[in-house]
């Protein structure tokens, strides 16, 4: 090694390289690609290869893609389908995940570790295969569908009986598989939050005569709101941009926005339009939620004595 390198490295070169190496990587392979998407959303589709071009004269850019975004019913419907599906999945994850997270805090330490492991384990197995497992279960010939049909038929009058329940290729299937796939993302932050709560508060409320559900409603639930928000965002944000689940179990005529972006880009080869839909998805959904989360976290930190 030359001596100037040693001097530089020992002075502050080592710290500069720690910052610079990952910084440049992320700028080059994440920021610049994203900038390309933003620029492309103002271009138009051409018959050239790549199928993108800018207007020949000033102002060179076109807002036509964004115009179509608010003018064309297809996109508005896809955005609302995404928001509704993601919102339903988030609420269901909360309903299923909250008692589970609370339950895990109420068992002894060794059980806790086993149960947490069991929550995380499906997350480590292939995501695609977990979706695939549900395709098998929801099919009209599967034991699960037959069982469900039998249960439903036992309460319905005989002349209304189903032969099977058409679950596949519907928004019901999408929400079900979203809940299945993202449930750990709800349970883990909720558990982290509930575990830190001071149980003496519960005992105090009990001593003062509250019934168990009142203790839950007045003490545990308000204190767990940061956990609910964290888990909710971790489910809602990825669920709203999901591509795999709607493509495999969803209804092709009522797609979610991730599928619209994918089809616009790969099938229709309208890259500028796909870019505009993507930018709008980020601006409408992800950025506001992240900003909210950021300020909420700051307010929480600031509120502490």
């Amino acid at each position: 090694m030359p001596s100037w390198f040693n001097t530089w490295f020992n002075r502050d070169g080592w710290s500069k390289s720690i910052i610079a190496i990952p910084y440049f990587w992320l700028v080059f392979f994440f920021l610049i690609p994203f900038a390309i998407v933003v620029v492309m959303s103002f271009a138009e589709r051409t018959a050239t290869s790549p199928p993108v071009g800018f207007l020949p004269d000033f102002p060179y850019v076109t807002f036509e893609n964004y115009g179509r975004l608010v003018g064309d019913w297809v996109y508005i419907r896809a955005y609302s389908t995404s928001i509704i599906n993601a919102f339903m999945a988030t609420i269901l994850c909360l309903i299923v995940g909250y008692p589970m997270a609370l339950g895990i805090t109420r068992v002894n330490k060794s059980w806790r570790n086993i149960l947490l492991m069991l929550v995380i384990l499906p997350f480590w197995t292939s995501f695609l295969l977990r979706v695939y497992a549900w395709i098998g279960l929801m099919g009209s010939n599967s034991w699960f569908n037959k069982l469900l049909t039998a249960i439903v038929n036992s309460v319905l009058p005989a002349d209304m009986a189903f032969r099977n329940i058409p679950m596949m290729n519907s928004n019901f299937a999408v929400v079900l598989v979203l809940v299945y796939s993202y449930l750990p993302f709800m349970i883990l932050p909720l558990y982290a939050n509930l575990e830190k709560l001071d149980t003496t508060l519960n005992e105090a409320a009990m001593d003062l005569g509250s019934r168990p559900w009142q203790v839950f409603k007045d003490v545990t639930l308000p204190l767990s709101i940061p956990g609910i928000i964290a888990g909710g965002l971790l489910v809602f944000i990825p669920a709203s941009g999901e591509l795999v689940i709607p493509s495999l179990v969803g209804n092709a005529s009522d797609p979610m926005i991730g599928r619209v972006i994918n089809d616009e880009f790969l099938t229709a080869r309208h890259w500028p339009m796909a870019s505009a839909v993507a930018v709008a998805l980020l601006l409408l959904l992800v950025v506001p939620l992240m900003a909210y989360n950021h300020f909420e976290a700051k307010a929480q930190a600031g509120g502490k004595p």
């Binding site: 990952p22 910084y23 992320l26 700028v27 392979f29 994440f30 920021l31 610049i32 690609p33 994203f34 390309i36 998407v37 492309m40 790549p50 944000i237 990825p238 709203s240 941009g241 999901e242 591509l243 991730g258 972006i261 994918n262 880009f265 890259w271 796909a274 870019s275 993507a278 998805l281 980020l282 992800v286 992240m290």
Partner: peptide, 22 residues
């Protein structure tokens, strides 16, 4: 930049990377 890829929908990350390579 460190947090963004965690919350960016995968479709968008995929498209932007493909566009960079193209």
């Amino acid at each position: 930049l460190v947090t963004a890829p965690l919350i960016m929908p995968e479709v968008i990350t995929g498209i932007s990377m493909l566009l960079l390579f193209i």
